[in-house]
Structure formats: structure tokens, C-alpha cells
Simulated assay, not measured.
Amino acid sequence: MEDLSTLFAVAMISLLIGAAIGYFILGRLKPEQQNRAVLEKQFSEMQQQQQEYQQEVSTHFDRTGELLNELAESYRSVHNHIVEGAQNLHASGISPLQALPEGRPVLESKSNKVVPSAPPLDYAPRQPGKKGALHEEFGMDSEKKTKEQIDPPIAPHL
């Protein structure tokens, strides 16, 4: 009986040691799970960075818009001050400068009804009784010279 219990204990210890070794070997052979966890962490970090960047861009353009509005108001104030001074100090009391209206300018909408034009033609229109631009003799002299009437080339004089 003692041999049987010793054999059983050795078998159990061997089984536990084998399971532990198998677990570590399996962990080394399957790095996909480890890589997946690392990639998921990197992906979540990148998403967070992207959201922070978008928030920074949005905040930047909001502030830029506010600053541009302040600049426009400052320009309007300076311009109107110059107009007032020009009207008060000009000899005739009439200044060529005009004050800018307060607030944001309203764009006037002119309802110009534009008649749509015809699309451009991709060919020369043919005149009645004449050959069109796509005809092989278009632009050639009306009288054709025969081979006998063709003048020979003249040599250049040296």
C-alpha cells in the first residue's frame, strides 16, 4: 500500500509540474493574446489622444473667432473715430470718409436673375451651303491644283 500511495503522490506531483510547464509554454507559444491586449491598449490611447486633439482644435477656432470679432470691433471704433475727427476738423465740414455701421454688417442679397447660358459647342457650326469644320476639305482652297500646276520648290540663294 505504501508503494501505491508513493506512486500516486509522484504521479500527482508530476501532473502538477507538467501542467505548470505546459501553461508557461502555451503562454510563450501564443503571443497573439498578449499582442492583442497591447494593441487594444494602444488603440484606446490613440482614440483618447484623437479626442483631445479634436477638442483642442475646436477650442482654438472658437478663441480665434472671438479674437477676430474683437479685432473687427476695434477697427470699426478706430475708423469711426477718424471719420468723426475728419468731419469735425475738415475745413468744409464734409469728409469723404463714412462711418461704419455698428454690429455685424448685413450682406445685401441682390436677386439678379441670370439666364443660364447654353453649353459651349465642341464644333464649329456649319454654314448653309458650305462644308463643315469636320469635313476633310475644310479650309482648303476652292480650286484644287493638279500635279502639273504645282510649282516646284525654289532653292534658297546663297
Rank of each mutant, 00 (worst) to 15 (best):
E102Y: 02
P153K: 11
P116F: 04
V114E: 11
P152K: 08
A86P: 00
L89H: 03
E73C: 01
H135M: 03
E148W: 00
D62N: 15
L121F: 02
I150R: 14
L158S: 07
E143D: 05
A155H: 05
N112H: 10
N80Q: 08
H79K: 06
M1E: 12
N88S: 10
T6K: 15
D122N: 15
G65Y: 02
A91P: 01
Q34P: 00
S109F: 09
A133E: 06
G129D: 12
I21H: 08
S95H: 02
E66Q: 13
M46Y: 12
E70H: 09
K30V: 11
L158V: 05
Q127C: 02
H157L: 09
L158P: 01
D122F: 09
E40P: 00
Q87K: 15
K110P: 00
G18S: 13
Y53I: 07
K131W: 08
Q55Y: 07
L4E: 13
M1A: 13
A72V: 09
S5L: 07
E40I: 14
V83F: 04
R63A: 08
T59F: 01
Y53N: 06
A99L: 06
R104C: 01
Q54M: 11
V115H: 02
Q50A: 13
G65K: 03
Q98S: 12
S44G: 00
Q54I: 12
I154Y: 05
Q49C: 01
Q51W: 04
V83L: 04
E52K: 15
R76M: 09
Q127K: 14
I82N: 01
I82K: 05
Q48R: 11
V78H: 08
H60L: 13
L97W: 01
Y123C: 03
H135T: 06
P31N: 07
N112V: 15
E56P: 00
A91R: 03
E136D: 07
S117W: 03
Q149C: 03
T59K: 13
L29F: 09
L89Y: 04
S58D: 15
I154C: 04
F138V: 09
H157G: 05
P31E: 06
E137W: 10
I25R: 12
S111E: 14
A133R: 10
D141V: 09
L107E: 14
P119V: 06
F61S: 02
Y75I: 08
F61W: 11
F138M: 08
L4Q: 14
K131A: 10
P156E: 12
E73L: 10
K145N: 05
G103F: 05
H60E: 09
S111M: 07
Q55N: 14
H157I: 13
G65A: 07
G65M: 02
L4W: 08
Q127Y: 06
V106H: 07
G132M: 02
K131V: 12
Y53P: 00
S74C: 08
L158F: 06
L97V: 00
N35Y: 10
S5W: 04
L4V: 13
E40M: 10
H81S: 13
K113P: 00
M46G: 02
K131H: 12
L39R: 14
F43A: 13
I94N: 05
F24V: 14
T6H: 07
S74M: 10
